[in-house]
C-alpha cells in the first residue's frame, strides 16, 4: 500500500448547509505522523470524521487503507473501522462498562478470545498508568484519565491507522505527555500511521512529522 490515506478534492457538508470542507486533498504514506491544524470551526474534526466514515464526502475521491469511499457498503465500512484506532474529542467511552471492558472493545469486535482481550487491556492500561483503575467506570475518572483510557482503547488492537481528534485538548500536562508518548510510540515501535487534529503542535515532540493547515475549507501542506 503506497498511501494509507489518499484524498483528492473532498467536499463535505453537514445536511444542507454550506460546505465546511470545499476542496481538501492529502496524501499520507504508511508510518507517517501527520498533524492537521487550523482555527476553531475550520473543519478539522470534519476531516477526521470523514476518514473513519462518520461523514461521507459529497464530492471528491477518498481512499483509506485501500478502501474506496465511493458507494462504500456498511459491511465494508465496518471492516475498515476494525483496522482503525480512533481517539475522540469527547472520549466516547461506554458509561455502563468498566475501564477494562472499554479498552477491550475493539478486541471483542475483532473476535479475539477473552484471554487475549484481558491480557492486552492490562498491558495498555499499565502503559497509560491506569491499571489500578481497571474496575472503575468512566464517570468515576477525571477528564485526563478518561482520555488515557480512550487512548488505550484506540491502541488495543494494534491499528494500521490512528485518528486522533484533539487528544490533549483540556488535559493537564501529565496526561498530555502520556498521550503524546503513546502516539509517538505507536508510530516508532508498531509502525502505525498517526493523524492528529490539534490546535497546537507540542514543542517537545522530537520527531519528523507532516503538517497540514486547514483554512477556508482547503488543506495546505505546511511541512
Amino acid at each position: 500500500m503506497e498511501y494509507v490515506i489518499k484524498a483528492n478534492g473532498l467536499n463535505i457538508t453537514y445536511g444542507r448547509d454550506e460546505p465546511v470542507i470545499t476542496d481538501a486533498s492529502m496524501l499520507i504514506k504508511p508510518q507517517e505522523f501527520v498533524f492537521i491544524t487550523g482555527k476553531s470551526g475550520s473543519g478539522k474534526s470534519t476531516i477526521i470524521k470523514s476518514l473513519y466514515g462518520e461523514l461521507l464526502p459529497n464530492r471528491g475521491d477518498l481512499n483509506v487503507c485501500g478502501v474506496d469511499f465511493k458507494q462504500i457498503s456498511t459491511t465494508r465500512l465496518n471492516v475498515l473501522r476494525r483496522y482503525l484506532g480512533v481517539v475522540f474529542q469527547d472520549y466516547k467511552l461506554i458509561d455502563e462498562w468498566t475501564v477494562e471492558q472499554n479498552v477491550m472493545l475493539p478486541l471483542i469486535i475483532g473476535g479475539f478470545s477473552k484471554g487475549v482481550c484481558v491480557k492486552q487491556a492490562h498491558k495498555l492500561l499499565k502503559h497509560v498508568k491506569l491499571l489500578h483503575k481497571i474496575n472503575k467506570y468512566p464517570y468515576e475518572l477525571s477528564g485526563g484519565e478518561q482520555q488515557r483510557v480512550a487512548m488505550a482503547r484506540a491502541l488495543a488492537h494494534n491499528p494500521v491507522l490512528i485518528l486522533a481528534d484533539e487528544p490533549t485538548g483540556n488535559l493537564d500536562s501529565y496526561s498530555s505527555e502520556v498521550i503524546w508518548n503513546l502516539l509517538k510510540g505507536a508510530k516508532e515501535h508498531l509502525g502505525t500511521t498517526v493523524v492528529v487534529v490539534t490546535h497546537n503542535i507540542p514543542s517537545t515532540l522530537n520527531m519528523d512529522y507532516k503538517h497540514y493547515f486547514l483554512e477556508g475549507g482547503i488543506l495546505h501542506e505546511v511541512h
Partner: peptide, 11 residues
C-alpha cells in the same frame, strides 16, 4: 449511545 460507539469501532 453504546450502540453508536460500537458502530464507530466496526461492530
Amino acid at each position: 449511545r453504546r450502540m453508536s460507539i460500537m458502530t464507530l469501532f466496526g461492530a
